[in-house]
Nucleic acid binder design. Structure first.
Length: 562
RNA sequence: GAUUCCGUAGCUCAGCUGGUAGAGCAAUACACUUUUAAUGUAUGGGCCCUGGGUUCGAAUCCCAGCGGAAUCACCA
């Protein structure tokens, strides 16, 4: 960690020294009493009111014996006024001349006491009578400036830096903070509504012996004491249904799920889903509940149901449109998929220029057509209903058509936001569906579901008719905050580790010998000129940093690049 | 995984067809008692992402790597 300090960082460390030499503590232990916030002082202007505020000093305009600075607290910024002779009425002007003018840096936390007033230009400010350094900043913040026309200059925009150092992003970019405040509000509004319905917030295991409830590749870990593999959950559905079996009428969980798949604008390896299960309801009830829920969230969070997302105006006013999967495909492609065989669907795909894989069954093929030709068209909220049974192994058969299920997905802005079922509670049907999944998996679908015997046992004890829904919280927040990327709505999106490993000459030499194809360790050894000890050390260093891999295969030690 | 683009001061970015590295803000010093992108004068600050190559000479051209972004592919 011994990084070279920049000129400015050296400077601030020197300043820190000087502060201590003056007998001041740059990181005091005692609390500072805050009586007001920047925004409330401005909103409820009261001339001469005495206030104590605390925050970061974000700008300084020094004009000899008087100065202005801006203080930023959790609510926003307010201008503060330092006058030498008011701050230091006696002979000793150190506090102003030295401490304020020289020893305070932008980004430092200070607490001030002063009186509210309006400047000649009309800006509400605080006239400082005393101030105290609360915490010294040793690194300079990037400091965007806003001019009279509201244009921002030198904004801190580099996405890599913004995500890796979100704390800086939050200090410096108020919009970012707003996004996360909105995110939090969405969660609390939903909790409130669920609470009003008498639903119970629950917690279910994140470490699961069988990763069920969805089709996705899991992260795997190991429990030492039990010596078993455990999976990070890809969904919590099966556990929540067990709770319905146990007699709760409504349960919900805001759950972090984990999927070991690609990352892009709409996917992060860990993401948040809200799942809700309500007994004695069906998916029609759930549609009504969902549209009212979203409408209320929009009103509470945006103050309106009419939101703008990118180029599109979207109305979250209930009720939402309902379109069956069959109608959707018929409308956008002209093909009727009802009662079509796998072969027929495959030729429809061919006619529509949609690529197919041999392991795709009826469900996947239909999903492919919908995803390719229909999904993107639904900007305003639309319930797509009645999915083919092959795509929905946990969903109850449709009451009017046994080849369909009672399922809907809610599409907004061309993307899936929610997925809901009349839950399958027939244990025998459920077992058969799992077995079909197993066959798909044997056919090469590496996302087909595992069979959870305990879940089937639970169903055999009887689960009341139930409707359940999962809402992708990150995507919902993206919609409501008009953000284009999931990284913008996660505080700490997953990034490649930034640490670059420092390699010795020998490390580099060995690394250059290793390739993607494995070779015998002894062969690699013979190509490098060094002592055995050096070799051993270097290879261990490289494997520890995941640059090469050494492993055994049929009693041969092999080495290859990772 | 594929393609394209990007990586230069604390931040935002210039730097042409190769010739010892530039601006604004930030920093340092001085001046200035109601400013607000405060102002004026002066000063300091760089492994030009890393490693190779071409060349008398590379921030610049070529190759490889690392990191990021976008588009596509994958993804319930």
């Amino acid at each position: 960690m011994s990084q070279e300090l920049s000129e400015q960082e050296e400077q601030r460390r020197l300043t820190l020294q000087k502060i201590r030499e003056l007998g001041m503590e740059p990181y005091p232990a005692e609390a500072f009493e805050v009586t007001h916030f920047a925004e409330s002082i401005k909103a409820e202007f009261q001339e001469h009111q005495t206030v104590q505020i605390a925050g970061r000093m974000m700008s300084q305009r020094i004009m000899g014996k008087a100065s202005f600075a801006e203080l930023q607290d959790s609510s926003g910024r307010i201008q503060v006024y330092f006058n030498r002779d008011e701050l230091c009425p006696g002979e000793d002007k150190t506090l102003y001349n030295e401490v304020f003018k020289k020893l305070l840096d932008l980004g430092d936390f200070i607490g001030i006491t002063g009186q509210v007033f309006k400047t000649q230009v009309g800006e509400i400010s605080v006239n400082v009578t005393s101030f105290k350094l609360l915490s010294k900043a040793l690194k300079p913040l990037p400091l965007p400036k806003t001019d009279a026309d509201g244009n921002t200059h030198d904004a801190f925009t580099d996405p890599e830096l913004r995500y890796r150092q979100r704390y800086v992003d939050l200090v410096v970019n108020p919009k970012v903070k707003e996004t996360f405040v909105t995110r939090s509000k969405v969660f609390s509004v939903m909790r409130k509504i669920f609470d009003q319905h008498g639903f119970l917030e629950v917690e279910t295991p994140i470490l699961q012996p069988i990763p069920g409830g969805a089709a996705a590749r899991p992260f795997i870990t190991h429990h030492n004491a039990l010596d078993i593999p455990l999976y990070l959950r890809i969904a919590n559905e099966l556990y929540l249904k067990r709770l319905i079996v146990g007699g709760f009428d409504g349960v919900f969980e805001f759950a972090k799920d984990f999927r070991n798949e690609g990352m892009d604008r709409t996917h992060n390896p860990e993401f948040t889903v809200m799942e809700l299960y309500v007994a004695y309801k069906d998916y029609r009830w759930m549609m009504e509940f969902t549209e009212n829920l979203l409408q209320e969230i929009a009103l509470a969070v945006c103050g309106t149901t009419e939101i703008r997302v990118g180029q599109n105006n979207i109305s979250l006013k209930a009720p939402f449109k309902r379109v069956t999967m069959r109608e959707a495909i018929l409308e956008h492609t002209g093909y009727d998929i009802a009662d079509k065989s796998e072969e027929q669907l495959r030729s429809i795909c061919a006619a529509l220029n949609i690529e197919t894989q041999p392991e795709m069954g009826v469900g996947k093929l239909i999903d492919e057509i919908f995803g390719e030709k229909c999904e993107g068209n639904y900007l305003n909220p639309t319930f797509i209903t009645d999915y083919p049974i092959e795509m929905s192994p946990l969903c109850k058969r449709h009451r009017d058509n046994p080849s369909l299920t009672e399922r809907f997905e809610l599409m907004i802005n061309g993307k899936e936001v929610a997925n809901a079922y009349s839950e399958l509670n027939d244990p025998i049907d459920q077992r058969e569906r799992f077995e079909t999944q197993l066959q798909l998996s044997e056919r090469g679908d590496n996302e087909a579901m595992f069979i959870d015997q305990d879940f089937l046992r639970a169903l055999e004890y009887g689960m009341p008719p139930t409707s359940g829904i999962g809402i992708g919280m990150d995507r919902l927040v993206m919609l409501l905050t008009n953000n284009h990327s999931i990284q913008e709505v996660l505080f700490f999106p997953q990034m490649r580790p930034e640490k670059t490993v420092s390699l010795s000459e020998l490390d580099k030499a060995i690394l250059s010998i290793c390739t993607d194809t494995a070779q015998l360790l002894s062969d690699a050894r013979s190509k490098v000129d060094c002592s055995n000890k050096q070799w051993d050390l270097s290879v261990k260093h490289l494997t520890k940093n995941q640059l090469v891999k050494v492993y055994k295969e049929q009693d041969e030690l092999l080495i290859k690049k990772v």
